[in-house]
């Protein structure tokens, strides 16, 4: 009876921790949302923001800036940042390694290459590109990369080989993308070049809406896999022995993670390290890997992280804008290194 009380206590402690963590994220979310709307080449005061957001009829400059530029952009950052971090979380489950992620495994670069090719071909032929086509071509590219990585993983059971394989795909795809961009029409190059390094600039409501629908469907599907994911954390054999259809589960994971990563690439270009750093921070912060908690938390935190990075990207050296990838790398890479060191230490213990 006593131990039962203790367990009840533990449960409450855990719930308090989860609640606190979600609450802190919520506060951070609104602060960053506000800053993202407020800060820019034109600074807009809080009363003005409230006024503009509530009354949708003011046609002034500030109104245009908020509704046409800053809001869609921050919205895109939230939607795509979350997708990226969740994609990373799924790949980490699949490869049973916390260093796996869509960028490092070359999935983002594969998507980037396919999008670049599609863009150039279609713009030359038709003059414009549908965002659904962009997503589909990015997905095709992502699948190509992941197929290569999986093939490698089947041949060699070693994580570092896998990562090197991913990095090689990165180089090959980037080289091909650069090559194509060099020979593309002048008018496209500027656009394409900015995009191929990653940026949330130029987001519009239409894209934002499409991205949101597509990503939300993926997130819900991922959430429905929570139970399987939890079982899979014990490894393939044990997962199967408690009733997971492992083969089917693995296909779902690969499709979902590639699809989310592809979606991000289609709209914002490749964005590095979010997929590794954010899930890691979330797991540490919540002190658990329970998918029921971690999946929503990962998504939320990914959005917050990308809002922060985008804010820095566009304000640090304003009016010059940094690539989003530059900022995420500066924050993300040290986290990954810290993770590696910590892992080494815990292995030695």
């Amino acid at each position: 009876m006593k131990s039962k009380d203790k367990r009840e206590g533990q449960y409450i402690d855990q719930r308090v921790r989860y609640g606190t963590a979600f609450f802190l994220m919520l506060i951070l979310f609104f602060i960053l949302l506000f800053l993202n709307i407020r800060i820019g080449s034109v600074s807009i005061s809080l009363p003005d923001i409230v006024h503009i957001l509530l009354s949708r009829d003011d046609g002034g400059t500030a109104y245009q800036i908020i509704w046409q530029i800053r809001l869609p952009r921050v919205c895109m950052a939230i939607v795509l940042g979350g997708a990226l971090s969740l994609s990373g979380f799924l790949l980490q489950i699949y490869f049973q390694n916390p260093i796996a992620g869509p960028y490092i495994l070359g999935i983002s670069s594969g998507a980037k290459m396919f999008v670049a090719l599609t863009l150039i071909v279609l713009i030359q032929k038709i003059g414009r590109v549908n965002s659904v086509v962009m997503i589909l071509s990015a997905f095709a590219g992502a699948m190509m990369s992941i197929a290569f990585v999986l093939l490698l993983a089947r041949k060699i059971h070693h994580m570092s080989v896998l990562l090197i394989g991913g990095i090689m795909i990165n180089y090959i795809c980037s080289a091909i993308t650069d090559f194509v961009v060099t020979f593309a029409d002048d008018s496209n190059i500027v656009n394409l070049h900015g995009w191929s390094l990653g940026s949330f600039s130029g987001s519009n409501w239409r894209d934002c809406f499409i991205a949101m629908v597509v990503v939300m469907v993926s997130v819900v599907l991922t959430f429905l896999l929570s139970k399987q994911i939890q079982a899979y954390q014990l490894g393939e054999a044990y997962a199967q022995s408690v009733g997971v259809d492992v083969r089917r589960f693995r296909i779902y994971i690969i499709l979902l993670s590639s699809f989310m990563a592809a979606c991000v690439t289609a709209f914002a270009g490749p964005v590095s390290f979010v997929g590794i750093a954010v899930p890691h921070l979330v797991k540490r912060g919540f002190g658990t890997t329970k998918p029921l908690i971690i999946i929503p938390a990962c998504y939320f935190a990914g959005g917050i992280f990308c809002m922060l990075c985008d804010l820095i990207a566009r304000t640090l050296f304003a009016p010059t804008e940094l690539n989003i990838g530059t900022v995420t790398a500066i924050f993300g890479a040290p986290i990954v290194i810290w993770m590696l060191l910590k892992r080494k230490r815990s292995q030695m213990q």
Binding site: Q96, Q233, L234, G235, A237, Y238, S241, G287, T289
Partner: peptide, 15 residues
């Protein structure tokens, strides 16, 4: 109907 205990080592993270 059937449960197993294997020699393979499970390495669940934070479970």
């Amino acid at each position: 109907q059937m449960a197993v205990v294997l020699t393979e080592r499970a390495q669940p993270e934070m479970m």
